[in-house]
């Protein structure tokens, strides 16, 4: 090995190492490799299709409190909401990538109760959803909206990330930016 090759190799090595740390944060698209690394056993243990649980406004509050000090990602959506449908595959991917790392993700549908057996399961099957899904059944959605976050106007979709203590550390009204949301998750997970 010549005197020049060794430092060059060293440089390339350092560069490679640095890139491996930073590249995931640069990527705008979800990382495919993460899902592949998810342990098979854990995923198999989950139900193939989540049963959608109907909840009342009173039952919503307790759902928004993190369990076992795990950060919690909550997405409010409806089958009639186009941006919700657009972002949903990214949400499913995030759930796959982070659930085994300690993040809980839940999806709360604001569809009508009439859609419980029709549009909602149809969409969830299409999305191959494995996270817990709830349907908020409230004659008046306003108290729930206000309870979740006083700054939420009620537009769908809406996404909230809670840290392990239950504080909202990230929120997005309208379609979320996947890279931005993933960065927020990485940050909250690193604080655990």
């Amino acid at each position: 090995m010549s005197s020049l090759t060794r430092p060059l190799l060293l440089t390339l090595g350092v560069l490679g190492l640095l890139l491996s740390f930073t590249a995931p944060a640069w990527g705008r698209e979800p990382r495919e490799s993460h899902a592949a690394r998810t342990p098979r056993g854990k995923r198999a243990a989950l139900k193939p299709e989540p049963a959608v649980r109907v909840i009342t406004a009173e039952e919503l509050g307790p759902l928004l409190r993190p369990k076992d000090a795990r950060p919690l990602l909550v997405n409010y959506w409806a089958t009639w909401c186009d941006p919700c449908r657009e972002e949903f595959p990214d949400l499913v991917k995030i759930d796959q990538d982070f659930r085994t790392k300690g993040l809980d993700t839940i999806a709360i549908s604001l569809d009508d109760l009439a859609e419980l057996k029709t549009e909602v399961p149809k969409f969830l099957r299409l999305m191959k959803v494995r996270m817990p899904v709830y349907l908020l059944h409230a004659a008046d959605p306003e108290p729930s909206i206000k309870m979740v976050d006083p700054t939420w106007g009620g537009a769908l979709p809406a996404t909230f990330l809670y840290d392990a203590r239950g504080e909202i550390v990230y929120k997005k009204f309208g379609r979320f930016d996947t890279a931005e949301l993933r960065a927020a998750i990485e940050k909250v997970m690193s604080k655990k």
């Binding site: 909401c81 941006p83 306003e142 909206i145 106007g153 009620g154 537009a155 979709p157 309208g174 379609r175």
Partner: peptide, 10 residues
Amino acid sequence: IAAAFGCSIK
């Protein structure tokens, strides 16, 4: 003020 439930303005 009463929260309006609906679609996001694009």
